[in-house]
């Protein structure tokens, strides 16, 4: 157990070190979602969006939940990228030829991605706060938002890792990633409530786990516990199923790739 912890800590610290060496890229990945989506998109659609439709005092406060979950989505889907590069340049083989638990590398990646995502979510909520979005459920609500984010993120990161272990080249990986990310966002309640979507899109959006996450995060920010709790309960159930499926697939891909 002591060994296990030593491995995971060392491997997690490696991700942290890498990030700290890539200051520019860190800045951009941190700033991009709130700059592009929250500040630009949120303010841009301020008057175009009908508050009768969004059921929110303004578009930014409606969008905040969407941007939070979008960040989880993008970080999660990109969570396997570094393992993909490790696989391609042989670093993963070097790690795997050492007497470590087979799961340590993967766990370190989960821990790292979840931590970074949580920090980013906090920054986004902070920026939203500056634009007057005050979460209705307070600090406990924010903790709940982080929990939902992590539950969604675990499954997404597992999908990403499964892809990283299965694809032939990183070109394939990024094509699939680019193909998944935007449709997931458009076919969810991130930008527009389901009720305001064309029928066929709202049907598809209902099967998107992202919609479930947003529908729980949004009342936590906008309304309050009484409205949020049923959604939170529902999303926890949905995410448990989602995570179980993704982890199962991820473990399978990992075992196949690692012989």
């Amino acid at each position: 157990m002591k060994d296990y912890w030593q491995e995971i800590r060392a491997l997690t610290m490696r991700w942290v070190l890498r990030l700290s060496r890539e200051k520019f890229s860190m800045l951009f990945t941190l700033v991009q979602p709130m700059l592009f989506w929250l500040i630009f998109f949120g303010n841009l659609f301020q008057r175009a969006a009908d508050s009768q439709v969004t059921q929110a005092p303004n578009y930014i406060s409606f969008l905040a939940a969407g941007v939070v979950v979008m960040t989880v989505l993008n970080n999660g889907l990109a969570g396997g990228v570094d393992l993909l590069f490790d696989k391609e340049n042989g670093f993963l083989e070097r790690l795997m030829s050492t007497p470590i638990h087979r799961s340590s590398v993967i766990l370190s990646r989960f821990i790292f991605v979840m931590t970074i995502t949580s920090l980013q979510v906090l920054v986004i909520l902070g920026v939203a706060f500056l634009f007057g979005v005050h979460p209705a459920t307070g600090l406990l609500g924010i903790a709940t938002i982080l929990l939902i984010g992590m539950m969604f993120g675990v499954g997404l990161t597992a999908i990403s890792m499964a892809m990283a272990f299965s694809v032939k080249s990183h070109g394939d990986f990024f094509s699939v990633l680019g193909f998944l990310s935007l449709p997931m966002i458009f076919l969810s309640s991130a930008l527009v409530p389901l009720a305001a979507m064309p029928g066929w899109m709202s049907v598809l959006a209902q099967f998107n786990p992202m919609t479930w996450a947003i529908d729980a995060v949004r009342p936590l920010i906008l309304s309050g516990w009484s409205e949020a709790l049923p959604h939170v309960g529902m999303v926890v159930l949905v995410m448990l199923v989602f995570d179980a499926l993704c982890l199962y697939g991820g473990a399978k891909a990992f075992r196949r790739a690692m012989g």
Binding site: A10, R14, R18, I100
Partner: peptide
Amino acid sequence: FLTGREHLQLLGALYH
């Protein structure tokens, strides 16, 4: 992105 020493330190931890 890692230094030479950091590579060896990482492996040191992996060999416990």
